[in-house]
């Protein structure tokens, strides 16, 4: 796979001096679904806006499909569709007209059959002759998606697509994303919801304070999530971990009263049974045992906390 979007040393400092992006590097592979997670003000929207040409970068370069987004903006932008976070629509316009407008704006000739398909996929076909102002919030968001898809983009940016959206629409949206992925469309979505990233993304990126802290395969993250810790409280403190327990990589607390054992729930053998046996054999008494699991949420929160330091 080759990178369809390449971001190199991207910096954006706003006029007020606020540094929204600090030397961001990012490769987005063709056909993947990338979820960008991050707290408010992390720079997610600035990153997307800069790729789409709405915000001018302070320095660095971006290319889409091998075309520089500034020097060769026509070719680059033709490939890109953007669903903005805010519901920005002209209230007096009709649904079909506004979608046609988007297609024309992106340099494509009229193709009502294609637009009909999009509107049907988004359950908007019945509303095609209605005014935007008459639609509910969820329907308006669908119109934004229809507009973004109207010119058959290869890369689709969804900026917080499910913020304030009901469960039904969220599921519809996920199905749509799945269909688009089958057509080979690359999708980048930003979200607050970690479960959303888990549900549909191939890779997960975490961004905070204008920096990408991590970008990893969801599978790799999930295995990190599968890691559990067992905290073993002892009846009496021990000076050292007995040699017979050397294979378990146990971590002894400073006061010698607690041993911590890390294991994978995903592996066939967790080693808990043998550990407990070996502890008994070594003559170590147990007061209590606790297990805890790290989640994507923990990973995320820890990353964001660390970067705040």
């Amino acid at each position: 796979m080759s990178a369809i979007v390449q971001v190199r040393d991207l910096q954006k400092t706003y006029d007020g001096g606020f540094e929204a992006l600090k030397r961001v590097n990012l490769d987005i592979e063709e056909g993947e679904i990338l979820a960008l997670l991050g707290p408010n003000g992390a720079g997610k929207t600035t990153l997307i806006s800069t790729i789409c040409g709405i915000t001018t970068p302070t320095s660095g370069s971006i290319s889409v499909g091998g075309h520089d987004v500034i020097d060769d903006f026509r070719r680059a932008r033709r490939l890109v569709g953007l669903v903005p976070q805010e519901i920005n629509l002209e209230p007096f316009e009709f649904v079909m007209n506004t979608v046609r407008f988007s297609r024309g704006l992106f340099g494509k000739g009229r193709n009502d059959a294609y637009l009909e398909q999009i509107l049907k996929d988004l359950s908007l076909w019945d509303k095609r002759g209605g005014r935007i102002a008459e639609l509910s919030g969820g329907m308006k968001r669908r119109v934004l998606i229809a507009k973004a898809l109207s010119h058959e983009p290869r890369v689709l940016f969804l900026d917080e697509p499910t913020a304030g959206v009901d469960v039904e629409l969220r599921k519809d949206m996920w199905q749509l994303v799945e269909r688009l992925r089958k057509d080979g469309v690359t999708i980048i979505l930003t979200t607050h919801y970690i479960e959303e990233a888990e549900a549909i993304a191939d890779r997960v990126g975490v961004i905070n304070k204008g920096e990408i802290l991590l970008i990893e395969d969801k599978a790799a993250l999930m295995s990190r999530m599968g890691q559990k810790e067992m905290r073993i409280e002892l009846t009496e403190s021990i000076e050292t971990v007995p040699e017979s327990l050397g294979d378990y990589d146990l971590v002894r607390s400073n006061d010698g009263r607690v041993l911590t054992y890390a294991y994978q729930t995903t592996s066939t053998r967790t080693g808990i049974t043998s550990l407990l046996k070996d502890l008994q054999a070594a003559g170590i008494g147990l007061r209590d045992v606790q297990t805890s699991q790290s989640s994507l949420e923990d990973i995320f929160v820890n990353l964001v906390k660390e970067s705040a330091k």
Binding site: R74, L82, P84, N88, L105
Partner: peptide, 18 residues
Amino acid sequence: YFPKFIGTIYEILSAPVS
């Protein structure tokens, strides 16, 4: 002014139009 005011200008700015 109106697209600027209601925010639909984003589409013009992100479109392949000079």
